[in-house]
Design a protein around this nucleic acid. Structure first.
Lengths: 223, 223
DNA sequence: TGGTGGATTTCGATC
DNA sequence: GATCGAAGTCCACCA
């Protein structure tokens, strides 16, 4: 990884056009060739960047020197270096990568293993049930054999309810499954989303991730 | 901006739980206190981060030394420094900020100037036509004098179709404009969004930004 | 390889 | 401060 601190100006031409006036910034060049230009604030997002794969051309003989970075899509990032304050490089090696726990996929897995936690007597028909407009997180049947479509979100907001509505609409078009019930499940659901779910005729359930993780599927079958 | 190259391991506990095994990485601390941990690859997104505002506590007397970063939402990022390779700081000062050109607003302007590019014979009634749930990008009339509501997106996805549907629903409530047609316009539209648009009775149009920019309004009036 | 949906999305405008 | 929508979104998964 190469780190350059420089007074620079930057131009990007590609999916849009963007310009950065002259100022002091960090230019980060990673081992895979990707380049990011950071100001001294503003979260982690760089002001400008170019992802790998790309080609970096340094024109050191011109004044001021420039870097021209081009990718196969013909996007270009041009960095004009008015003054280089610092220029260093370090070999970091490969990264073992990030281990995550607690994202939506985990929640969906746990609920697929334990549909009882959503509603008494539910049995799983399919995870990621395919429709023309995208997969439904969980499709179950209740004790009356009614089809229940379930949308799982980490955070329950209005667009999740809309998504569920679209899926059910599509399910009813695609097949003759009879009346289909909708259940909106999330770790926490915003009041507006609860209201919308109810007005759409859906039920909603807030589930606790840690509790769910603590429950073995067998425990749930006892209910 | 402080830049630390170190062999470190990292734990994040907050909206989810995440762990980074020991490896060499860049730790970037910006002037506003935000912290980002970068590997030597993988675009511009850091492996782990903590945005401002937060509190950074360095425990240098323990072995190994740790940084504990906490924010008001009680999320914590813990960095364990097994070996510091480099530690430097630079004063960058404020950044004048990024100037952009070619975003959705520009597309909307061009289409407002050349509604013919969307559909033969359209004439503009208003841009940003106000409704109770937000403004409609473009409202036009076709040669039959039918009102045409147009949603403009840079990229056409399902959400945009839903947005158009809500607007038209609202238009029909608010006034007696007769039947209202919907047109979904974007530089590229995803297949699922096309399906949904058609099932809602809307038409959709893909437009090219550069072609549109090259067209003078007068050229279009000739059609 | 391209499409689709989630994200510790981030970021800005608007209310 | 909350909400809503855009983003050069990035990213992983899956066809």
């Amino acid at each position: 990884m190469r780190l350059v601190i420089a007074r620079c100006s930057v131009d990007y031409a590609g999916r849009l056009a963007a310009h950065l006036p002259e100022a002091n910034r960090l230019i980060m060049v990673k081992a895979d060739g990707c380049v990011a230009i950071h100001a001294d604030g503003g979260a982690y997002k760089p002001l400008n960047w170019m992802n790998a794969p790309n080609t970096i051309t340094e024109t050191l003989d011109t004044e001021p020197p420039q870097w021209v970075i081009t990718n196969p899509k013909q996007e270009t990032l041009t960095i004009t270096l008015h003054e280089v304050v610092s220029d260093s490089a370090h070999e970091l090696g490969d990264d073992p990568g990030l281990q995550k726990d607690g994202v939506e996929a985990h929640l969906q897995e746990l609920l697929a293993a334990s549909p009882h936690a959503i509603e008494h007597g539910l049995t799983l028909v399919r995870r990621e049930y395919p429709t023309a407009i995208g997969p439904i997180d969980l499709v179950c049947r209740d004790p009356d054999n009614t089809v229940v479509a379930i949308e799982v979100k980490r955070r329950g907001e209005i667009d999740g309810v809309e998504q569920l509505a679209r899926y059910i609409e599509r399910l009813e078009l695609d097949s003759s499954l009879g009346t289909i019930r909708g259940v909106f499940v999330a770790q926490s659901i915003k009041p507006q989303a609860k209201v919308l779910a109810e007005s759409r005729g859906f039920t909603w359930v807030e589930v606790d991730y840690d509790t769910l993780r603590g429950m073995a599927p067998d425990d749930l079958r006892l209910f």
